[in-house]
Every structure is written in C-alpha cells, then in structure tokens.
Design a protein around this nucleic acid. Sequence first.
DNA 1: GTAATAGTGTCTCTTAGACAGTATCCT
DNA 2: AGGATACTGTCTAAGAGACACTATTAC
Lengths: 244, 244
Amino acid sequence: MKNHVPTARTTPDFPRPYTTVDIVIFTILDKALKVLLVQRPTHEDDPFPGLWALPGGFVNVELDADLEACAARKLREKTGVASPYLEQLGSWGGAARDPRGWSATHVYFALLPGLDLALAKGANAADVDWFEVDELLASPRLAFDHGEILLAAVERLRSKVEYTSLPAFLLAEPFTLPQLQQVYETVLGRSVDKSGFRTRMLAAQFLQEAGHVAGPSNRPAMGYRLADRSGPVVFPRTFSPRGH
Amino acid sequence: MKNHVPTARTTPDFPRPYTTVDIVIFTILDKALKVLLVQRPTHEDDPFPGLWALPGGFVNVELDADLEACAARKLREKTGVASPYLEQLGSWGGAARDPRGWSATHVYFALLPGLDLALAKGANAADVDWFEVDELLASPRLAFDHGEILLAAVERLRSKVEYTSLPAFLLAEPFTLPQLQQVYETVLGRSVDKSGFRTRMLAAQFLQEAGHVAGPSNRPAMGYRLADRSGPVVFPRTFSPRGH
DNA sequence: GTAATAGTGTCTCTTAGACAGTATCCT
DNA sequence: AGGATACTGTCTAAGAGACACTATTAC
C-alpha cells in the first residue's frame, strides 16, 4: 500500500540509515583486561568531539564484501593484526544514538595476544590507546552508545570464559598452563584451583604440546598450542566454587 | 583523506547499504518445532519471486525508534502477538545477499506459545504459513540467505535449550512440567529422564505454582507460570545422557 | 642447600542419571 | 477395578573442589 510506483519494488526509496561496523578489541596487558579505543576528532562539527570511542566506521560498499570483511579490515588498519579471534557481538541501531541521524552499527569483538601491543601502537597514531576495562566500566564516558556496547562485550567475554577455552586466544603461542590460568583469573576476577584447572583444560582436548618453554619462573613448563584456532571449545560444565 | 568537503564530516556521503530487520519466529505445533515464513511477491521485478522467506523488511526511519522496536512492529504485523520472547540473533550483511545491492539485515528470533496459532493465521493472509524446521533444514529453498540465517537460529535455540529455561516461552501459561518436558524433548530431538528433569526445573527457581490443571492426561498436574518473563534462567550444567 | 614455580595424588561431598516405586485421577 | 499419567525415592558412580604433596629448575 506504500508502493505507488513499480520501481519502488526493485530499488526501494526508503530513507536509509547509516551502516557502520565497530570492534571491541580485547587484550591482556599488565595482568589486566584492556580494550582499544580511538579518540574522536576534535573538530566541532563531528559528533562527540574529543571523546574516546570504539574503533570502527562506515561500511565501505566498494571495499567490503560483507560485514565480517569490513570488521577485519578495520581491525587490520588499527592494529596491523591480520587474523585474531573475531566474533560477532550484535548490533545496535536507532534514531538517537548518532546525532547525524538514524544509524545501525554491527559490532564485533576480537581477542589479541598481549604481545602484539608494541605492534599495535607502532602501527598507528597517538589517538589510539589501550584502556583498562574495569576503569572504563566504573566511569564510562565514551562516544555514542559505546559504553553500553562495551558493557555487553565484557559481559559476553566474562560469561564465555566460564565455560569455554576463549582465553587461550588472548595468549601468544606457545603458552603454558600457568599462563593460561593467569588469564582466566584476570578475566574472571577471581582465583581458580590449579589442579582442577589443569584437569579441565587437558580433558577438553584443545591443546597440543609444543615442547618445554622457559617462562618467568624457575622451572620450565610445558608449552602448548591450540589444536584448532577457528574457535573455542565448550566445556560441559561451568567454572564454579562449589555449586554455581 | 577521502573527505574533501567539510560537510562530509557532519553528514557522510558514503553510499548507504539497505538496512532491514528479519525475524525467525518459532513455535511448537503438532509436537514439532515450526517457523513462520512469508511468500515473496510473484512480481518478476522482485528478488526471489514466489520463494518463501523470513518475515521482515526495511527499517522505517520514521516509525522505528530502534532495531528492537522495528522487530517488535514486524512481529505484531505478521502474528498479532505483542510481547513474546524476543532476542537478537545477529546480523548478516554483504554485497551479494540481495540482488538490489549491498544490504545488511538485523535478525531477531522470537518464541511463541503454540496456542496463538489460530490468531496468527487469522491475522494475516494466505502468503504466511508455518513450516516444520527439520524439513526446511533438510532441503532449504529460501529467499536471500535466509536458509543460512534459519540454520543459525535453530542452532542457537537448540544450544540454549541444553542449559536454559528457554522452552518455557514456547508454552502458554499455565503449563505443566510434563508439557514442558515434552517441549524440551521436541526441540532437543531426544527423550530426557523425568525425575532428573523435574529436579532440575524446580531447583532453578523460575517456576511459580498456579494451581492444578487438567491436561490431556487422567491425573491433573500442577500448573506453573514463569516467575520472570524477561528472560530465561541459565542452568549450571548442560543436559546430557551420562557425560557430555 | 633454599626458594620458587610446575605438576600430581588423594579425599570428600555433591549431584546427575537411571530406574523402580507410589499417588491420584478418569472411565 | 484397571489403566494411565503425575510425581517421588533410592542407588550408584562420576567428577568437581580443596589441599597436601612431589618434581624440577635457578641461584
């Protein structure tokens, strides 16, 4: 009943919202969970001038074959990293989130090994930096609805850490079990039992031995690689100190 | 480096992809998991004429405050149901999925009580119908990439059924525990132990007693309502016949 | 040797799964 | 009474959590 003209069928003339892609890039740095942010230009005509925001931007119809390719491109541009763990988080869209008009953003989240930090900072300018997640959540002052998006990303990450091998993607290979445990504890915000942790990880069959590795300790530990980098393994149970 | 004109900052002049919202609407009918599809117009200029597709369409910038409101509106238009369980599934976007050009769709999935079937069919025309999910997955012939989307939705649903109270949203209240178990078994495709099932459900504390109800059986069973319709409860463990 | 971290053994207690048994209703 | 379905009890075995113990290195 809205289409008076036949051509409206083939190429609808609705007003089109902006389409963007944003990425929540996590890493472990100084034993803390950090996220990569970029500073918005200070030009007055820009929305949220000077505020920090998630890296991202408009979909480029010519460059990007699909959404994931667009996310991968933006990630490469900001960090120089080509193939980290990349997962879709969800999408946020509405009339109010961007002062320029109705917009929808497709959000991905990525996990980077802590090592690539130097690489990441070197690749780009001074308007990019790592921020501690806990501090950001305590007092969120991000552009757009990025505070809300960051919260959703952290919740997804923390929740998945309870029952998957996701944290392994935050480490450079080869890594040791104590290192992996350290990452779990950092993300979860609590300590876990060593013995149970080891049994659990080895039982899940996602680690391949890669020879002994001299870590920060005295005794060298067994190094491991991921048997399958395409995604995490799901544990049959959740981590939990005595029931739930 | 691309913005020659200052005004490009405030209102970017990138070509904008189409923005749509699609919904995967599940229900239980005849002890089978079904999904609602609509038939595409047979006009030759339309993409995928005559094929069945997920209900959905373009975001209406004037009508829809945000994506979820848009999904709720489309769901209301197709089924007449106002407030079912509605959850975001993800987004699919790319140059190839719609012959009219680069498009991105935000997909939600909804769970409806089987009862509202008559309502749903009455509310709309003959180009809407329920399809058995298993048959669709066996030979998918849907418009756009909706086959892929449907698969993702079913996987999400089946996976969540293993460790959440989601199936309760597929039943009209009040419902009995045997009815709920029946739904679990239908979605999972296998039978579960009665005793363990009951213990599990009651321990999760999401059911409120609502008096005895005469079901299809001889002995009346206790009826239950959801204590909280805003979302499912997560169980600490997964359903599993002896290990995983 | 000592210190420090890597890795293992063992005990206990919870609880899921299996299945048998009891209760309550209808015809 | 008999049949059908709702609901409960019991047994067993697996596995998580807790913690003490041993092993291997650097100094």
